[in-house]
Design a protein around this nucleic acid. Structure first.
Length: 490
RNA sequence: UCCCCCAUAGCUCAAUUGGCAGAGCGAGCGGCUGUUAACCGCUAGGUUGUUGGUUCGAGUCCAACUGGGGGAGCCA
């Protein structure tokens, strides 16, 4: 596919036989901007703006997504197609430009490409209705043209930061000898216990073969594809625990699906989650890992995407870079749930939800703790067992479990984790207490019957991390094509 | 799912008590200029989200629906 697409493109630009990517004579703009003056380049990208000078030349800002900055192309009036092509280029047109890098006479940039040839690859049908014209657009509007919004500064920057973070996740864990485990997307029973699930089925619910008189027949999952009910995963954790109990340090990084009817700026029906799991480790190890992990991600983005981060700092959230630097330097505060409740009770602030030991922390409580009291990311540990999942390890006080939530200013909860209950008798007791059936967990319980080990892990919401790092207010703007209730366009 | 708010030109928004549909940006054309948030002039651009209702008359008032935003819950 790529080969033929390249051939097509090469034909359009009249450059002879097709080339594969690595043979291509194309210079990406990120490389062109770093190349020495006097070198010749062939660049390809999309026009951001065109400015004409009646001194007989035009300026084209061209972007190809390889970095934040555009390359300024100077188009001399002597070009054979200056009148009929260059002067008709509009925002969004794709072009191939060959020329020489020269020192720029203007302000805004140090170098520019003086064009020898400019070829129009793809025209813009109607500049008046081009959806991402050269003006400010609201994020709400851009969501309705999600197929084109990556051509804007903001969404290009988000995509590059997203890639950088994604790469940094693998890099950090790989270097610490974690193995990347591909846990299943389809799960066969509702035993993951993390909320509403999407059903996976090949049954035609609207046209049952055995429907009679408009009366639908009852579902019989024995006839379904898997011969039983199946769902999209809400977490890879239980699966990855099994690999943890043999390969030691492991992680998942994949799509996750929640059918919750959540309509907020920090929920998606389809999102990506990173779930490391460490063997022979406890909650303290888990907290140490998550701290180093988050710091590494932030540090990497600040270094490798300085161009995009500068933009976010300037246009999206003032002071963003400073606050991220502080996070990298300061240690995260670790506070027990019990102490956090005490702090909230002491606080002069009036909360809508009254504070009392045993309650789940509400948004307003989390915000107060991380944004006002500590003013940095905090790790709250040891929650009451009643408000946490069955698999979390029961502490010696018999009242709390070894759970942790990491909350950050502006987002709230970004990580949820725990030490897992490795004692079969305690696990069984907890399953019973929560009114869950033991049977579906047979394999999970097996892990505790055969060479059980203390282990712990956490789940990091990848999009929330991107939000935190970029300052983007809405989670729908940090994933290419967001899926939310009543919305699955593109 | 609950509460509040919104829907008018390609986009962002105006429109007086219910009385002729407006501006800025973007776009097209022209002028000026090694330009870069350019600047100056002209032009085009509308079934006011959908359906129904009240009224002599509805962008404006009422109802339902659809879509969107903010907050809450659930969570990552």
């Amino acid at each position: 596919m790529i080969r033929s697409a390249q051939r097509e493109l090469s034909t359009v630009s009249g450059k002879g036989p097709g080339r594969t990517m690595h043979e291509q004579s194309r210079t990406l703009i990120v490389d062109a901007l770093a190349a020495p003056i006097g070198t010749k380049h062939r660049i390809q990208g999309w026009i951001r703006t065109r400015r004409d000078s009646k001194a007989g030349l035009s300026f084209l800002n061209v972007n190809d997504g390889s970095c934040f900055d555009n390359l300024q192309v100077v188009a001399p009036g002597e070009l054979s197609n200056y009148e009929d092509t260059v002067l008709r280029l509009t925002t969004g047109c794709s072009v191939t430009v060959e020329g020489e890098l020269v020192a720029s006479q203007g302000a805004g940039q140090t170098i520019e490409l003086r064009a020898d040839t400019i070829e129009l690859v793809g025209d813009v049908e109607d500049p008046d209705t081009y959806p991402v014209s050269a003006k400010r657009h609201s994020f709400e509007y851009l969501r309705s043209v999600a197929h084109l919004r990556s051509r804007t500064n903001t969404f290009g920057a988000v995509a590059r930061v997203r890639h950088c973070l994604s790469y940094a996740v693998h890099d950090f864990l790989h270097r610490r000898r974690f193995l990347y485990i591909h846990t299943p997307i389809i799960t066969a029973s509702d035993c993951e216990g993390a909320g509403e699930m999407f059903r996976v089925s090949t049954l035609d619910l609207l046209n049952r073969e055995n429907a009679t008189e408009g009366q639908p027949a009852p579902a019989d999952y024995a006839d379904d594809f898997f011969g039983r009910e199946a769902y999209l995963t809400v977490s890879g954790q239980l699966s990855v625990e099994s690999y943890c109990c043999s390969l030691s340090n492991v992680y998942t990084f994949g799509p996750t699906f929640r059918a919750e009817n959540s309509n907020t700026s920090r929920h998606l029906a389809e999102f990506w989650m990173i779930e490391p799991e460490i063997a022979f480790g406890d909650l303290a190890d888990d907290a140490t890992l998550v701290t180093a992990f988050l710091k590494h991600l932030i540090r990497t983005v600040l270094e490798e995407r300085a161009d995009d981060m500068k933009f976010f700092d300037l246009r999206i959230k003032k002071g963003l870079i400073d606050s991220l630097h502080k996070v990298v330097e300061a240690d995260f505060a670790r506070v027990s749930y019990t102490d956090a409740i005490a702090e909230l009770e002491k606080a002069k602030k009036k909360f809508e939800f009254p504070v009392k030991w045993g309650i789940d922390l509400q948004s307003e409580h989390e915000r107060f703790l991380t944004e006002e009291l500590y003013q940095q990311p905090i790790i709250v540990i040891d929650y009451p067992k009643e408000i946490k999942a069955f698999y979390m390890r029961l502490n010696d006080d018999e009242k709390t479990v070894a759970a942790m939530d990491v909350m950050v200013p502006g987002i709230g909860e970004i990580v949820g984790g725990s030490q897992r209950e490795e004692r079969l008798d305690v696990l069984d007791r907890r399953i019973d207490e929560m009114g869950l059936p033991r049977e579906p967990y047979w394999w999970y319980r097996d892990l505790r019957r055969y060479g059980t080990v203390p282990h712990a892990g956490f789940g990091l919401g990848f999009e929330r991390m991107i939000q935190y790092v970029t300052g983007m207010a809405n989670i729908r703007d940090v994933i290419p094509f967001p899926r939310t209730p009543r919305s699955a366009d593109f």
